[in-house]
Design a protein around this nucleic acid. Structure first.
Lengths: 226, 226
DNA sequence: CGTAGCCTTGAAGGTGATCAATGTTTGTGG
DNA sequence: CCACAAACATTGATCACCTTCAAGGCTACG
């Protein structure tokens, strides 16, 4: 747990907190290590915990009536998931959360949220920050609806790169399949493959066992704003 | 102002507050009556106020690189807009807000938010509720990306009807153009017109000067889940 | 009475979906 | 460590949905 706390202390959420304070905020919390593709919680299950991503990544997905999945968000270390729902009594998760690669999270009971977190102005503010960036991301995606597929994929990749690596890095640190890209931009796998294969051939990107490397960032940026 | 307070007291946000409490929360607030199509604030302007819709409606729009607009959200009476951004110092509005029909709002300075609102747990919780439903709406929309246009339009109409009227009503109380529907579902005006003209012919909907009436709700509901 | 905003209709064409088949890599149990 | 299954990537052909472009009509309002 001390290990955990020290890595949490580096996240945006807890940056201005002491180890003691963090420990108090984690009351009743439990570390969970998820394997690749393991589910943390399922849509429609009763929401009794929220979670903080410590390492790895979660995809927040929702099945559609048509049978396919839609990926709403990729949660990176430091992200809080299912926090908004904690304010509702007896509510169900609106989405499912699935690990991408080996992932560590802390799950915290609703009761801790409603006692410790809800009365901590600083934390609430941080959570709002997290929500704000999530909302911004959804807006950015929606603003691309009428753009062509290559632009959408390019934007998504850039966004993921920034969200997971900060600046400068060019290799996405999570295993990301073409299907997942398709599910997040609202396209079919085949179409995503056609676009990305062309990029690979032109040397714009490179893929080594599900890890995507951006070789020519300038080109991707350009594509994202056509 | 007393008039205003009494209509605010009926909103979800202030339902459990006394008139005095409401007045305190509105410190520095100013009533604004907007005409149809008048802009409350513009994207990229410095965000110094947030607002509560009292009557009418606002569309929250964002221009895209391709030149067209995207409508992110339709704000109904009781909705709070630009609240999330209040936590950031010197931030700009990420979207523009434009009145649909004659609209009354209260604009409240950032300073009030950061003093009175930020220290009021109850209010923060309510705001989270507002955000939650906004997020849910974005999710619902995203879940429809791969659906066909008629389904998207049907879903959007149902969602607006619920958001603006509660239950049971069948006439949308805001002037809503085909262009606005198109901008909100990510389609072209022409396509929206083609779909809705067919509905009009079949007697599923009726339009009288920009007010849409749902005649056969069952059909619309059915269409929304194909 | 002219302009602005909105609605309508038709024709042509393209982007991306769907379907189907196959190759490749990863993982697992005997 | 091999064999087989599961997950993932690929390619081609066909076709539907929706966009785009163009032209015109209707209604409200200053």
């Amino acid at each position: 747990m001390t290990q955990l706390i020290s890595s949490l202390a580096r996240t945006q959420l807890f940056e201005d907190r002491s180890a003691d304070q963090i420990e108090a905020l984690l009351a009743g919390g439990r570390e969970r290590r998820l394997k690749h593709r393991e589910m943390l919680f399922r849509a429609d299950d009763l929401a009794e915990h929220f979670a903080i991503v410590v390492e790895g990544a979660l995809k927040l997905i929702r099945p559609t009536i048509l049978g396919n999945d839609v990926i709403m968000f990729f949660a990176a270390p430091g992200d809080v998931v299912a926090a908004l729902i904690m304010h509702h009594a007896h509510a169900a998760y609106p989405i499912s959360a699935v690990a991408m690669g080996p992932t560590t999270v802390i799950t915290i009971p609703k009761s801790t949220f409603n006692t410790v977190w809800a009365s901590d102005q600083g934390i609430l503010q941080k959570i709002n920050g997290v929500l704000f960036s999530r909302m911004s991301e959804m807006h950015a995606q929606k603003a691309m609806t009428k753009a062509q597929l290559p632009s959408k994929i390019a934007r998504q990749i850039i966004s993921l790169l920034e969200h997971f690596e900060g600046e400068g890095e060019t290799i996405l640190p999570i295993p990301l399949t073409r299907q997942e890209i398709a599910d997040s931009v609202g396209a079919s796998v085949e179409s995503v493959i056609r676009v990305m294969s062309e990029w690979s051939q032109k040397g714009v990107i490179r893929t080594t066992d599900q890890h995507i490397e951006i070789v020519r960032m300038d080109q991707i940026v350009e594509l994202s704003r056509i």
